[in-house]
């Protein structure tokens, strides 16, 4: 047994060592460093996690954007197809098939009547539309029709003109 070795008491220690002992010994700064490193690691991890979450959201947005792009393309194609179909439906062969199926026929040109005013309507100041409700008697009674007799008369005049040509 070593009689000369004894636990040094705090009061026997020089000031520097007293302080060291009071602060927990020579390994304290390591823990501080470690703590700092852990803190930084936690911060980095946190930032990385946020980044991952952000990236995931961005990817979701990308997918959504791509989906919408595909939808826009599909709509464009559909529009194009509808327009082509419209042009096809208005094509003559298609219309002819339909008219044949429905039993329709082309309009007869001789059924077209063109109406023209023989004379301009007269404006009489002070008169109202009610004043024209009843047609007056006499020649003015038929402003827009041609009687058979008048037609025959006109025809005779024109016959004379035609005869003159030949």
């Amino acid at each position: 047994m070593n009689r000369f070795t004894r636990l040094k008491e705090h009061k026997d220690l020089p000031d520097e060592k007293r302080q060291t002992r009071a602060s927990g010994g020579s390994g304290g700064w390591v823990w501080a460093l470690t703590a700092k490193i852990i803190l930084i690691a936690v911060l980095i991890f946190g930032a990385h996690s946020i980044r991952v979450v952000y990236k995931a959201k961005t990817e979701d947005l990308n997918k959504e954007a791509r989906r919408i792009d595909a939808q826009i393309r599909a709509i464009k194609h559909e529009t194009m197809n509808l327009r082509n179909r419209k042009a096809q439906l208005s094509a003559r062969p298609y219309i002819q098939k339909k008219t044949a199926k429905l039993g329709l026929r082309a309009a007869d040109y001789s059924q077209v009547q063109h109406v023209a005013l023989l004379q301009e309507p007269k404006y009489v100041p002070g008169r109202t539309p009610a004043d024209y409700a009843e047609a007056p008697a006499g020649k003015e009674a038929r402003p827009y029709s041609v009687t058979a007799r008048e037609k025959k008369k006109d025809g005779r005049k024109d016959n004379a003109k035609v005869a003159a040509v030949f």
């Binding site: 040109y109 063109h114 024109d158 016959n159 035609v162 005869a163």
Partner: peptide, 24 residues
């Protein structure tokens, strides 16, 4: 007819003239 061009002469008058001209 598609263009809605009005005729130059009344169609009935036209027919009458042509008939007469053909006869002559």
């Amino acid at each position: 007819r598609y263009w809605n061009v009005p005729p130059d002469v009344d169609p009935e008058l036209y027919d009458a003239r042509r008939k007469l001209a053909a006869k002559q």
